[in-house]
Design a binder for these strands. Sequence first.
RNA 1: CGGGGCAUAGCUCAAUUGGCAGAGCGCUUGGUUCGGGACCAAGAGGUUCUGAGUUCAAGUCUCAGUGCCCCGACCA
Length: 592
Amino acid sequence: MTPAAKLSRFFLPTLREAPSDADNVSAKLMFRSGMIRKVASGIYEWLPLGLRVLRKIERIIREEMDSIGGQEVSLPVVQPRALWDETSRWGVYGKELLRFKDRKDGEFCFAPTAEEVVTDLVRREIRSWRQLPLMLYQIGLKFRDEIRPRFGVMRSREFLMKDAYSFHAGEDDVTRYYGEVVGAYKKIFGRCGLNFRPVEAQSGAIGGSFSHEFMVLAETGEETIVSCADPQCGYAANIERAEASRPGDARTGPSSANDPNLKTPADIPTPGLHAVEEVAKLLGEQPRRFLKTQLYILHGKPVMALLRGDHQLNEAKLAAHLAAPEIRRANEDEYVKFLGCPVGFAGPQGHPDVPIHADYAALGVLNGITGANKNGFHARNINMWRDFNAAGQADLRMTTAGDPCPRCGRNLEWHKGIEVGHTFKLGIKYSQAMGATYLDKNQNPQPAVMGCYGIGVGRTVAAAIEQNHDAAGIRWPASIAPFHAVLIVLDLAADPRVREAAASLRSALLAAGVELLEDDREDSPGVKFKDADLIGIPLRIVLSKKSLDRGGAEIKLRSALQPEIVPLSECLPRSLALLGFSGKEAVAATTE
RNA sequence: CGGGGCAUAGCUCAAUUGGCAGAGCGCUUGGUUCGGGACCAAGAGGUUCUGAGUUCAAGUCUCAGUGCCCCGACCA
């Protein structure tokens, strides 16, 4: 039985005001409640109170990962270049990968993730299909040299991540197992008391439901997610990847080049107006009747994306469509060089050497308005197939307000979210590159099929605060609270009954497995109440002359408005009930 | 990487035209208090981010550097 933590001796430097560089609610509260301090941009120290929360979440993760057959390992944080060269990621990863040399000039990096290392481990030890599936996970520090760390531990450079990797004999087995992991993730975030949503993280057009992001819903989230208003449908996706346009959106085909409805192109002077909205206003036309072009550069050559005037390009989709992550937007000089006109006056017609990749929705524009490829002019009645051809067609745009659910056609709801977990069916990308093979039943070597699964542990802490706080401070869900209860004892000197009552209540709570923080500081009651609210312990118990005069102890949930007076003999059961302790949990906690 | 801003006590911030470096909170000591961040008194605490320059004089002006923050493209 652990003794109660005495606040007078507990390293809990609370602050009345947050440091000025804390830039969101959770970071402010984590600083103020003495959970974290900052060492450098994106690098934090976790103090005892914060670490207790981190450990609570880790424990939940371990239990759920173990329950689906995961086995915990500890993989190195410092990893040799040689392994990263095998998958070409030493070159591909970019500046986010922190690299350095040891005294012998050997090249290393600080692990941002561990696919290479774990695949290396497995290829050396796994021989047979009989040894599969194998699920290994670890909870350890990662480092990604983020361009712009922000929001405290939510986007830090050094961070605690649970990363898991599964190896399978065959595609079917990963698919089966992937579902188990998603189930475990739902339990993990559910047990953490979070309101979250798993969303598809891969464009559904590719047909996959094998990458999910787990989003904690919060107004302050950096991610935007759309979900179907109909729970029966259940479609939910990151806005970055949500299906927007579909082939059916195109209403024309090559035969339409001779459509009698096509009108003759005509130039219109539009001096100085380059935005679709400006030209639309001048002409009294809807933006949806426009064809919008955006020029990109791939390996020094121009590529044009074509969109309907009221739509926004999704660069990630364009990159995926072209299978070219290295594309970049063309600058003004390149517009002039390749299209012969400044940005804002370019149209798809008249550039046979520039491949055009059209969003499906753009193909439905009849007699469209677009740039005339001359400074100060736009053109009417431009039509695909007659005036230009597309090298490719795809879903290239962002979902916009008013778009229907791509699955069932009903309305979409928009939410903000914080990504706390990501699951991914990897396939054989790493096992093939690194030669992680097993012998199948027919003695044929096969690359192991892999899945990988991450959880940002520190980010989960911050997300929990974003979702559970009020003006006074944090309101921890009981399952991840640093302590279950805080005991505030007042009038110690003035009333001898208080000490006795505190002693018996303290030992009863501890014996029942309640994690107890006792505020024994020589401070005024106000200070203690303020700090208790700030650090957000779920249950507050006050013993004082006043409470005893009224018949016992004063008990209050952090979320409750008013305390209740409970007779001393009832304090233990009442506390356990308020904490939602079942008998089982209490016993488990006691026997630890 | 591009654009903008900031850097003064542990925290939040002042310092007029270039003219003695300050306040609140926190901390220490003593006293008085004790149910929502109490009060009185006395203290401790500073390389004004670093370096150079201008000046009789620089927290303040100039230059360079560093760190941090905010706005845009990656990610747990």
